[in-house]
Design a protein around this nucleic acid. Sequence first.
DNA 1: CTTTTTAGTTAAGCAAACTTAACTATATGC
DNA 2: GCATATAGTTAAGTTTGCTTAACTAAAAAG
Lengths: 147, 147
Amino acid sequence: MTNSSQFTKSLRAWMDVFMHRSMHGWNHFAKSTGLSMPQFSILMQLHHKGPCGMSEVSDRFDITAAAASQLVEKLVQAGYLERTEDPIDRRAKLLTLSVRGEVLIQQGTEERYRWMNDLTSKLNAEERAKVVEALNILTNAAQKHEK
Amino acid sequence: MTNSSQFTKSLRAWMDVFMHRSMHGWNHFAKSTGLSMPQFSILMQLHHKGPCGMSEVSDRFDITAAAASQLVEKLVQAGYLERTEDPIDRRAKLLTLSVRGEVLIQQGTEERYRWMNDLTSKLNAEERAKVVEALNILTNAAQKHEK
DNA sequence: CTTTTTAGTTAAGCAAACTTAACTATATGC
DNA sequence: GCATATAGTTAAGTTTGCTTAACTAAAAAG
């Protein structure tokens, strides 16, 4: 097998198992909190990208401004989000995760992380070191790639 | 920093960026196919775990048998799934991805994979080798852990 | 200063996911 | 063999996500 196809194969295998597992986990967690996936995804987005306006929500999830507004309204009512007026542009709103929202996402991440941790708990020190190094390489590459 | 907390930190950082990105990607892809996320998730499950009965779908997604039956019906109508009678237990149904369903999931995986590939395209041979090794370690660990 | 964009909200209505309840058909336990 | 449990379907009704359309308010353009 060529190096390149080995790379492809390893990437695919890992993505397959990891994505399947983590999607299931998030779904399950979202349900346990009483939030729908669209609602939950907005919290995730805020957590990941930081505060933003309403329009970024509708862009990101490819829904109308009306739909975004309604989803956000529910999250504000439930206390997961804070929606303040943007002082620079008073038409715009500034959406930020509330403490409650932040805690919720942390808990979800914790559960997801725990699976990874269990899974890697039987690795020896050398293997763990290799995993750390590779994940750092990937995370760096992703950050460069995003911007 | 201790080794253990370095490990935790690397794991978290990678999970955060990767999950956010891939969930967005799947959402987008599902929307482009005209399938809803619940419908799409069933196809993903079938792809990942292989053929199963109706009850496994309702268990897996934590929905009633009625809901599962209705979702599956739509997927069968759309030609993504085949629903046959289980020859051993004639009450039960055997759900399998059709060729069309398989192709759909392959396409989605392809897109997700392409992102990873772009992101890693600037890595040198040594880095790629490290990534391959680590992902193989993780995939193996996950497979042991699942069963 | 007036016109036009832009950001967001609200209301009405449709479509999809989901539930409960009643049902059919097959398998299992006694 | 009969009662009971299990696998799945169908129908009715609720909830939620989403859209379009009409709106308010502020910013930008002229």
